[in-house]
Design a protein around this nucleic acid. Structure first.
Length: 350
DNA sequence: AACCCTATCAACCGCCATCTG
DNA sequence: CCAGATGGCGGTTGATAGGGT
């Protein structure tokens, strides 16, 4: 294996980066000036180059990448400088082993966001999108596959899994679901109004907004790889904030306040759905134990629910989130379309 | 020792959204 | 409103390290 801290300092001849992918997009012959590498150095950065770049940015600040190399005296293209800074030289970039709690969070976030590496990285301090992407491709996707889970959809590779039955008919044949929607959590269900927020084994209300409850589908997806680990929310890791932070107040709504915090809180609510499921599981266990006379009724932990879990109350999006129509009972939209609209809004916001 | 295979990850690419004039 | 410039993103590549034969 290549040691992370040494490879980039390699002074070996050109090589390093790959030939570049198509990105799956329409190929055009146009190239930006930055992409023309005439006379520019490529491949691994040398310690000298790193020093020059770091010194320059520390003095002049980030930005204006296109012209930076010239100003800094580097024979690199702006993109290369930016990438090097963002992924390696920038302060606070954490390297080394991904901790189990980070891995857990990556899994949760990927289930919710799909391959939105920058969004995922934005919620894991010190980790870059490139690093997370690499870790996903080299570790986590294989890990999921070995567990019989499709890393792209976070659904069982075996389509006959009983956990799927509830939504299978609605989802499995969807081309949108299979191809157009790499986002992972395709079991999110937006029920119609007449549906009460009834909790079943695989349909958990996560949040509500106005008329609609937001359901989380199969709870067997993304089993916590380390059940002994607390949910980051409650672990003091500071990786995610409490959902209570996301309680939308009228003030915010009035000023059309739709910020990262709003989305962040919403995301947290989704992330913590796993914790929610875990809590539910604990509750079931507790009830069982109570029936067996093992433990006294009640729990000092306010997060431990007693019987029927209730969705987080009072959660709201900022005004910029047009979630109500998505959740609307009268909507003729099927689930996939609703979910797609939600993701579209995610895209628009971020 | 030499070769092969696999895993890793830095760096590259094209595309797209946003910014700016 | 438009066009060009710029920044940022996700997909992909390939050099390298290390283990196996």
């Amino acid at each position: 294996m290549r040691h992370p801290s040494t490879s980039s300092s390699s002074t070996t001849a050109a090589g390093g980066g790959g030939g570049g992918g198509s990105g799956g997009k329409t190929n055009t012959s146009t190239t930006t000036p930055c992409c023309s590498k005439v006379g520019l150095k490529r491949g691994p950065w040398t310690p000298e180059e790193d020093e020059v770049l770091a010194n320059y940015i520390n003095k002049e600040g980030e930005g204006r990448w296109r012209t930076m190399p010239k100003r800094a005296g580097l024979l690199r293209c702006g993109k290369s400088c930016r990438l090097r800074w963002m992924n390696y030289l920038r302060p606070n970039v954490k390297r080394g082993q991904i901790a189990p709690d980070e891995e857990d969070l990556i899994l949760r976030l990927h289930r919710l966001l799909g391959n939105r590496w920058s969004l995922i990285a934005g919620r894991i301090p010190g980790r870059t999108d490139n690093e997370i992407k690499n870790y996903w491709n080299t570790h986590l996707s294989k890990k999921l596959i070995s567990q019989g889970i499709d890393p792209r959809t976070h659904k069982p590779l075996n389509p006959d899994s009983p956990a799927e039955d509830d939504n299978k008919n609605k989802l499995s044949s969807s081309k949108f679901n299979q191809n157009l929607m790499p986002y992972a959590d395709q079991n999110i269900v937006t029920p119609s109004l007449e549906l009460e927020p009834v909790v079943s084994s695989n349909r958990i209300p996560v949040m509500n907004k106005g008329n609609g409850y937001y359901y989380q589908g199969s709870n067997q997806m993304l089993a916590n790889p380390n059940p002994n680990l607390p949910n980051p929310e409650f672990s003091g890791l500071g990786l995610v904030r409490s959902i209570n932070n996301g309680v939308g107040n009228e003030e915010d709504d009035e000023v059309n306040y739709c910020t990262d915090d709003v989305f962040s809180s919403f995301l947290n609510s989704l992330i913590n759905e796993d914790g929610f499921n875990s809590i539910q599981h604990q509750a079931v266990q507790q009830q069982q134990q109570q029936l067996n006379g093992i433990v006294p009724c009640g729990s000092s932990d306010p997060l431990i629910i007693s019987s029927t879990p209730t969705p987080p109350q009072n959660f709201t999006f900022g005004a910029g989130w047009d979630i109500a129509p998505i959740m609307s009972s009268g909507s003729a939209l099927n689930h996939n379309e609703q979910l797609k609209r939600f993701h579209d809004q995610v895209d628009k916001k971020f």
